[in-house]
Design a protein around this nucleic acid. Structure first.
Lengths: 179, 179
DNA sequence: GACTAGGGTAGACGGCGTCTACAACGGAGG
DNA sequence: CCTCCGTTGTAGACGCCGTCTACCCTAGTC
């Protein structure tokens, strides 16, 4: 099963802790505890907490990419999956954005998030051939803003349902053409 | 000078540490050290680190509100100020969004951020009387998304300048009218 | 003058990340 | 077979952190 043994097991435990208790709770010692090993054991696989969180973030990004794979490439579906992910796994979503934690981890965050951005742009441009890509990115920032609000359960502040917001963002006219 | 004495001084020091070294570095002990008092002294004014960060967040929100005051109410100017704040003081901007930290602090974050949202909506609707407010909020999420990317210096990922993004978001047609 | 409350000091506790020394194992080469 | 050595987990230490507690000192009050 766990072909690599402890390393995989540690990431599993860390992911569980992340979703259940948040980033702060993802601790080298607690992760080790849940795997039944000593507090020093994780160091052989992840030399620091930052590196552990970096690998955890990469795994989270991979899981989000898998959810993207399960769609048919429709931009609206991709956006819905993105926002739903932020709502369902807020701590994991947070981790993806914690550049302050991850830049010091050696795990280049851009190399994990760029493919996700590119996937969105490709999906959008495939359905909107007139767009050179800039409009897609403007929409991306709006979708990301919605997801960010939703993950913090702050969408109630603006008083609109996420689905409603998404629909408006994605169905309105081209941003490049002005008013 | 410091009419309230230590309490004010502690918040000043915490703000300085925040901007220079990030949220993690805002520590009760370090704050006390920079004020030349013992590590237990801050407890008389802030019974826990969460409370200290909560008050710090409220102060940051107040400073952002002051920058809003300095504009003439033009939505584009407000948005520029918002994004510029995120770019200039990324750690302070981060703190405003860390509901995980602040919800446990007793300082209700919504009561500090809601006025900022309301101010944006009012400014937008004053210039766009046809909007009932929903379009303003859709734009707000887009502006917030841009600010979020900029504060993490991730706008390079999408390959557009923040000013360019803002212009497209704010000058495009009404979101409510569909394509 | 004694009493009291507020605010700063100092020490302790446990948890954390990190470092280091050490033990157990397992395969490579003699 | 035995030896050597790299890998991996263990155990203890260090310093930092938040938090709790006991103490002290000062001001103000009766």
């Amino acid at each position: 099963m766990g072909e690599d043994g402890l390393r995989h097991q540690l990431l599993d435990a860390a992911g569980r802790i992340l979703d259940e208790s948040g980033i702060e709770a993802v601790t080298i010692r607690e992760t080790a505890r849940q795997c039944g090993v000593s507090h020093g054991a994780p160091r052989r696989h992840f030399p620091s907490r930052a590196v552990l969180l970096g690998h955890l973030a990469k795994r989270v990004a991979g899981e989000l990419a898998e959810e993207f794979d399960a769609t048919d490439g429709d931009p609206l579906r991709l956006a819905e999956v993105y926002v739903a992910f932020a709502a369902r796994r807020p701590h994991a979503f947070d981790l993806l954005l914690r550049h302050d934690l991850l830049e010091a981890s050696g795990a280049d965050l851009r190399s994990t998030t760029l493919p996700l951005v590119a996937r969105w742009r490709d999906a959008w441009c495939a359905r909107h051939p007139a767009d050179s890509g800039t409009d897609a990115l403007v929409r991306l920032t709006a979708v990301h803003g919605i997801a960010s609000l939703v993950s913090h359960r702050a969408h109630e502040v603006v008083g609109l349902e996420p689905g409603e917001l998404l629909g408006r963002v994605l169905r309105s006219g081209n941003f490049s053409e002005g008013m």
